[in-house]
């Protein structure tokens, strides 16, 4: 299928990526090539086949409802580019 720069824009917005114009054109071309190649899969009739999201029949992996305190707030905050003693800081989110 044709991958337009508009489609690249659409997936870029969803991915929070903002490619410069010249990269966008190049990316559209590369994606078109890759996605075009993926259309090989249509040679295979899979209409009766259940999609396999998990490879092994593992199921019901559940933990007990018992509290464990991790404790380290400082350690969790310490990697944040902007934080104070209690929280992660971000630009204003609501009006």
């Amino acid at each position: 299928m044709k991958i337009t720069t508009e489609l690249v824009d659409y997936v870029s917005v969803l991915s929070r990526l903002k490619l410069p114009e010249e990269e966008k054109v190049k990316m559209a071309g590369e994606l078109e090539q890759i996605i075009g190649y993926m259309d090989i899969l249509n040679r295979l009739d899979t209409s009766d086949i259940e999609p396999m999201s998990h490879t092994f029949p593992v199921k019901n992996v559940l933990r007990e409802d018992v509290v464990e305190d991790f404790g380290g707030r400082a350690a969790l905050l310490s990697n944040a580019p902007a934080h104070d003693d209690t929280a992660f800081l971000v630009p204003k989110t609501v009006d």
Binding site: A87, F88, L89
Partner: peptide, 8 residues
């Protein structure tokens, strides 16, 4: 501080 605090 004109910033939003995220509390998880």
């Amino acid at each position: 501080i004109d910033q939003t605090r995220a509390d998880y």
